[in-house]
Nucleic acid binder design. Structure first.
Lengths: 193, 193
DNA sequence: AAAAACCGTTGATAAATGTCAACGGTTCTG
DNA sequence: CAGAACCGTTGACATTTATCAACGGTTTTT
């Protein structure tokens, strides 16, 4: 259960964990299982935990005035799910996060994480690298969203994230790209020729 | 010249700098003046410096196949300008950054910054908080771009960033929002009624 | 096994936004 | 001061994307 998480940290930080540190991590992260469709976070609640996905698939989305879902993140194994703004600011979240497949996570509160970071240097390094990677990915996604047509955005996404294409149905991908399922269907039809 | 930067660090980190630390910072950050339209970073170059803006206004943008500029960031006093991806990965940047007004910056290389962080704890804390704030802002912007119409995006932007509206002309704001200047002109005309 | 929910597709039409060209009023610059 | 560059606006029209409704084929649930 903890194997993936420990491997993730080791790989990211490149600062081998001692067995004491490993034990501390195992004692702090709590396993949590979610059935398909079960909420991990519901709009209006404060996001208390961040979760590392050991197995499964999840999505994060907001719901607009008309009841339409807008998917902002998709997660699979080895991703971290949570709403940082809510978690840091302690404000009610604008997002829902739920399981798209049956999912196993390892969850931790922000306070626990801060505490662990004081004790385990590798975690500090990991967080910093994750933040950097994250900032870069966000920049790219934003750039793509602003500059490209729907068609090009889909191409780019399909090229860079084939795992998601296989794992989530088209209407979910469409929402993630900020277009309707009909438009995506037509784009794909075009592309096939 | 260094007053703004020191104040910025103190306020962000909330960990008062010693006078030795202040001296070290002043010795490391280099002043740099840019005339209006002068490049700070040009597409294809590796971004070697990040710069704190003491006075002035800048923009960051890419140029597409058709020669159209897509503005991804606007900066004014107390912002940091640079392309993180290029700077971290040491890859040629896809962006240009130039001065929209005559600008005074304090610049530092990534290596120097990493070195300073070893010596000044307040900087480590500042960077971490900036990363967090940044991640939150990116999330919001992305959400808004995906979920809202051009009109709502403009409203939100004008509400949250009135300084930019005053400082940059409309066609720059339009590009930043991912729409054409004509569309923005019409949106504003609508809104006036 | 039947019913319900889900999923992708298609057609017809509407709405949002882009493109191109032109204009008049600034502001910048030599 | 004169010409050039810049800026916002408008009109006519084209393109992209959304909306609504319907369908048949899955898969899931009961």
């Amino acid at each position: 259960m903890y194997k993936n998480l420990l491997a993730y940290i080791n790989q990211y930080a490149n600062l081998p964990l001692t067995s004491k540190e490993e034990a501390l991590i195992e004692a702090t992260f709590q396993p949590k299982k979610l059935r398909k469709k079960q909420y991990f976070l519901q709009e209006g609640d404060v996001c208390k935990n961040v979760g590392f996905i050991v197995k499964g698939a999840m999505r994060q989305y907001s719901i607009d005035d008309k009841g339409v879902e807008h998917i902002v993140h998709l997660y699979i194994e080895n991703y971290w799910a949570g709403d940082r703004e809510s978690s840091i600011m302690l404000t009610p979240s604008n997002y829902n996060i739920d399981a798209w497949e049956d999912t196993e996570m390892l969850i931790i509160t922000r306070a626990e994480m801060l505490d662990l970071m004081e004790k385990i240097p590798a975690l500090v390094k990991m967080i910093r690298l994750m933040d950097e990677r994250n900032a870069i990915a966000n920049q790219r996604r934003l750039s793509s969203t602003i500059s490209n047509t729907a068609e090009k955005r889909y191409e780019e996404f399909a090229d860079n994230h084939p795992q998601f294409i296989q794992r989530f149905p088209q209407h979910i991908i469409a929402s993630f790209l900020g277009i309707t399922k009909e438009t995506l269907s037509r784009i794909r039809k075009q592309a096939m020729k």
